[in-house]
Design a protein around this nucleic acid. Structure first.
Lengths: 165, 165
DNA sequence: TAAATTGTACAGTTTATTCTGTACGAATTA
DNA sequence: TAATTCGTACAGAATAAACTGTACAATTTA
């Protein structure tokens, strides 16, 4: 049974690979859409994705849009084809890591700003009314954020080495 | 207004810090429980947490258990106190990073094993029946997993440097 | 031993998320 | 211009997750 073996294997790969994709905080459906797009050599239309996954076209439209926003999938044109075609970006590690590290760096940066703002508020309280324990905790939390930011910055250096090598 | 300023500030810190904690794939409630435990100098009981967050004791029991499993919170004993007391681990960066990196390394390792298993199945198909494109894709996916594993392994080396320094 | 208190399992409810079908503006074709 | 066909906004249905109250085994107190 030539086809059935290959189909079973293909499904197995799809299943396992999608689990990894989900780790990047994609929904199960987004993960499956990406996986299908990656496994198929050809770019696919929304209708083909809908058919392949047995989900509505609306769902496909939403999932694909998310993936495009994350720069994991791109829209491609093919002359003579009216429908939009979508294709997975082929450099997996590069694109997933970019998306992942950006999310962390943005988030930690936002938090740091918010905490700095709060620190400013504390400084406007007269000295004798301040809660020293609270200030101490705040400093520790800010230190944590600094470590996080440094960590992900250094991690982004690793990433560059990895996919250039 | 001494207390109101300090309370406002405390709530602000709680709110912002909890957002960071959520990035480590903790639920909003787990994040708030951890944040409360970290901000309070004293270890707290389930009832005190329940009171502080306005949630049921069952919720607290579940959240705290998750946090203990992740090694982010520990149970402490205090003589004369019958109830269980919980305390946040104080080395934020160390414990969150350990927990987080372990999750990634475990997950990628599991996926790698599963893909190796599939690769074995492919090799049992007679040569002329094999789907070459599929095999190629599988190799690329396995390469991706290898890169992920290396990335998080190297990241765990960064982490050690960071919190030792 | 009896009474009280603790933490949690469980089932049911509430809340949030995911998903679908219809409808419609924009673009293409006839 | 009229008729199709495309992608998506929107509202409601289906599904999943979070949360609660009751009940109970285990432990402590009296």
């Amino acid at each position: 049974m030539l086809n059935s073996s290959n189909e079973t294997i293909k499904n197995g790969i799809l299943l396992e690979f999608a689990k990894t994709i989900e780790l990047f905080e994609l929904s199960p459906l987004e993960a499956r859409v990406f996986t299908i797009l990656y496994m198929e050599a050809q770019p696919l239309t929304l209708d083909e994705l809908s058919e392949a996954l047995g989900k509505s076209k609306t769902s496909m439209s939403n999932s694909v849009r998310s993936l495009v926003d994350l720069n994991l999938v791109k829209r491609v044109w093919k002359k003579g084809v009216r429908k939009d075609l979508y294709q997975a970006n082929s450099q997996l590690f590069k694109h997933f890591m970019n998306s992942y590290l950006k999310k962390w760096l943005d988030a930690t940066s936002d938090r740091k700003d918010a905490l700095l703002e709060i620190q400013g508020q504390i400084e406007q309280i007269t000295t004798d009314e301040r809660n020293r324990d609270l200030e101490k905790r705040l400093l520790q939390i800010m230190q944590f954020h600094k470590q996080l930011e440094e960590f992900f910055y250094e991690a982004s250096q690793i990433k560059k080495d990895d996919y250039r090598g």
